[in-house]
Design a protein around this nucleic acid. Structure first.
Length: 291
DNA sequence: ACCGCACCCTGAGCGC
DNA sequence: TGCGCTCAGGGTGCGG
């Protein structure tokens, strides 16, 4: 489940594979929910173009192209953006894996979930975008055209001012964790890092936002930055589908304190980590360390 | 304006 | 062996 750190690691690794290379061919799957720009139009807009950068804002990736247009990507829940030279079991479903000859399993084979494939005129590695559940997004923006989703985004979590969270929290009655997941408040926070930051700050995810004081809000935001920067260093969290663009797993899943550790001992006090459902999502916390 | 909830999608894992 | 059910959680959009 790609959140800010996974998207940032992806950005750093894909950027050198993308920027400056002229797109020669574009393969797509058929029109679907995934394509905000219909695939046929997308192909027309991308062939012959060259990206001049790869930027990130929250969980969105944005590639400005040499004609002033932009390519907008979102990995959703199960999106994977990687090089054609990557190999990882996470790039196959169990069914596909068993159907493939063993010698082919080492290397990725484009499948029905590979919605976008960019080939370049230099003949080097392709860039692939695979997304099993199609919660990801792909859109072409004409020069000057904006995307409503982007315009609603709050400041990127890594560069947000210290007071920002308290200012947003004081007027709201929703659980503090639900506020953290609101991308218009802070862009980039998802379920894993929200749970981890609340653990570090000692605040229970269910607490009403307006009952979280200034100091606690500062600790939560500092905690978010800390866990996200550390996750980026380790290559992100490979818990279900996420892989780095070269196919290797990230390392942050081994440093989690609470996320998906239901029943395990809290590292600080040894009581059992609890799991509850909050706003249709699971939340994990230590009942004695988080009040 | 705010909040809670249904829905988009598919595969893995489970009980029977 | 296979069926049906539940769960995963990124996001959007609706009704109260």
């Amino acid at each position: 489940m790609p959140e800010l750190p996974e998207v940032e690691v992806t950005r750093r690794r894909i950027e050198p594979l993308l920027v400056g290379r002229t797109i020669q061919r574009v393969h797509t799957t058929k029109p679907s929910y995934f394509f905000l720009t219909p695939p046929a139009l997308l192909k027309k807009k991308l062939v012959g173009r060259r990206a001049i950068a790869l930027e990130r804002w929250g969980k969105y990736l944005l590639a400005p192209l040499d004609d002033g247009s932009r390519l907008l990507l979102h990995l959703g829940m199960t999106g994977q953006l990687f090089s054609s030279s990557a190999s990882s079991p996470r790039l196959f479903s169990v069914k596909t894996k068993s159907a493939l000859a063993p010698e082919l399993q080492a290397r990725f084979q484009p499948d029905a979930h590979t919605h976008l494939r960019l080939s370049f005129t230099d003949g080097g590695a392709d860039i692939l975008f695979r997304d099993v559940r199609k919660f990801g997004k792909c859109r072409h923006l004409r020069p000057g055209q904006n995307d409503a989703r982007l315009e609603k985004l709050g400041p990127d979590t890594l560069t947000a001012r210290g007071e920002l969270l308290f200012e947003a929290a004081r007027r709201r009655t929703i659980p503090i964790k639900s506020l953290l997941l609101d991308q218009s408040v802070l862009a980039g926070v998802g379920n894993i890092y929200a749970d981890e930051a609340l653990y570090l700050a000692g605040v229970r995810p269910t607490r009403r936002a307006n009952r979280v004081n200034r100091d606690e809000c500062a600790r939560i935001l500092a905690g978010l930055k800390q866990v996200m920067l550390r996750s980026i260093e380790t290559g992100g969290s490979s818990i279900s589908d996420y892989v780095q663009p070269d196919g290797s797993d990230g390392g942050y899943q081994d440093e989690r304190h609470v996320y998906a550790r239901t029943g395990e001992e809290c590292a600080r006090c040894s009581s059992a980590i609890r799991r509850i459902v909050l706003g249709q999502r699971s939340a994990h916390y230590c009942a004695s360390c988080q009040r």
